[in-house]
Amino acid sequence: MVGPARPLFVLFGSSIVQMSYDVGGWGAILADIYSRRADILVRGYFGWNSRRAVNVLDQVFPKDAAVKPSLVIVYFGGNDSMGPHPSGLGPHVPLPEYVENMRKIAIHLKSLSDSTRIIFLSCPPVNETLINGSSSSGIFSEIIRTNELCQQYSEACIKLCQEINVPFVDLFTACQRKDDWRNACFTDGIHFSAEGSKVVVEEILKVLREADWKPSLHWKSMPIEFSEDSPDDLVAADGKTTLNPSSWTYYREIQWD
């Protein structure tokens, strides 16, 4: 650990989390937005479902850890919602068990500290046409991913969040607001493209902006590390003063709110 200490945000989930630091990924965008404000840690596991997540909660989020996360953003559901395989193998998790697994995750995270906040991301839609025509069909046994199943798991996650008072992002609905969302939001029909990642970030920031949390975890409300003026900063056009760059955002493609 290096100091000074910053608030810790953890992204916990399956491949949509593991791949979130790809070029233009939503985790990478958040890391940029929160630069000098919070450290963002990725704990994503390709192919995982909520059942596997529950089994490692104490290892990923030990209750005796010296540093407790200020925010955990959780995503599981895409793999859970896959149709069951006849062998009984595979990532499918029946809907009632998925709900209880997500409940266990929330309970564990809430137990870490009074100041640990949580956001759940619901299951996004998929591009069924692209998935069904994927060349990976010769590698895997039959993969059943449908928007009907995705919607069921998304709605179940949202219902649970409303019941246990956990803020959430309805990715199933948010993605479909974008024009040509099937092609725009996904690289392979499942994982987020750069455009899809922008949707995820926009929705997460909306939750953070509106949440009644003290202190606020919205980036504009958080202190900037080493933000004081310095004579070592770049000299302004007047030749007499310096320009403090600690809050500059001009280089960003999107000026996030």
Results as ranks from 00 to 15, higher is better:
residue 254 I to F: 09
residue 48 W to C: 04
residue 48 W to K: 10
residue 26 W to P: 00
residue 236 A to F: 05
residue 89 L to A: 08
residue 101 N to S: 04
residue 81 S to L: 02
residue 46 F to I: 08
residue 130 L to K: 13
residue 247 S to N: 15
residue 215 P to V: 07
residue 189 G to K: 10
residue 66 A to M: 15
residue 211 A to Y: 03
residue 86 P to Q: 04
residue 138 G to E: 13
residue 30 L to H: 04
residue 24 G to Y: 04
residue 74 V to L: 08
residue 13 G to K: 02
residue 49 N to P: 06
residue 232 D to N: 10
residue 59 Q to A: 13
residue 240 K to L: 11
residue 153 Y to C: 02
residue 188 D to Q: 15
residue 148 E to H: 07
residue 82 M to Q: 12
residue 93 V to A: 00
residue 79 N to D: 12
residue 48 W to Q: 09
residue 85 H to S: 05
residue 207 V to R: 00
residue 190 I to Q: 05
residue 231 P to S: 09
residue 221 S to K: 14
residue 203 E to N: 11
residue 222 M to W: 10
residue 239 G to Q: 14
residue 139 I to D: 14
residue 44 G to W: 11
residue 56 V to W: 08
residue 97 E to M: 07
residue 237 A to W: 12
residue 44 G to M: 12
residue 231 P to G: 03
residue 119 I to K: 00
residue 63 K to C: 09
residue 193 S to V: 04
residue 187 T to A: 10
residue 218 H to W: 11
residue 230 S to P: 02
residue 30 L to C: 04
residue 168 F to S: 12
residue 11 L to N: 11
residue 102 M to W: 00
residue 39 D to R: 11
residue 117 R to F: 03
residue 43 R to L: 12
residue 54 V to P: 01
residue 90 G to D: 01
residue 254 I to R: 14
residue 183 N to L: 08
residue 193 S to A: 14
residue 119 I to V: 12
residue 30 L to Y: 03
residue 162 Q to W: 12
residue 127 N to K: 03
residue 91 P to R: 06
residue 91 P to G: 03
residue 184 A to S: 13
residue 21 Y to H: 11
residue 157 C to E: 12
residue 6 R to V: 05
residue 151 Q to E: 08
residue 17 V to T: 15
residue 27 G to C: 03
residue 119 I to W: 00
residue 250 Y to N: 03
residue 78 G to I: 06
residue 206 K to Y: 01
residue 70 S to D: 13
residue 148 E to I: 03
residue 173 T to D: 15
residue 245 P to F: 15
residue 58 D to E: 13
residue 62 P to V: 10
residue 85 H to W: 02
residue 115 S to R: 09
residue 121 L to Q: 04
residue 13 G to C: 04
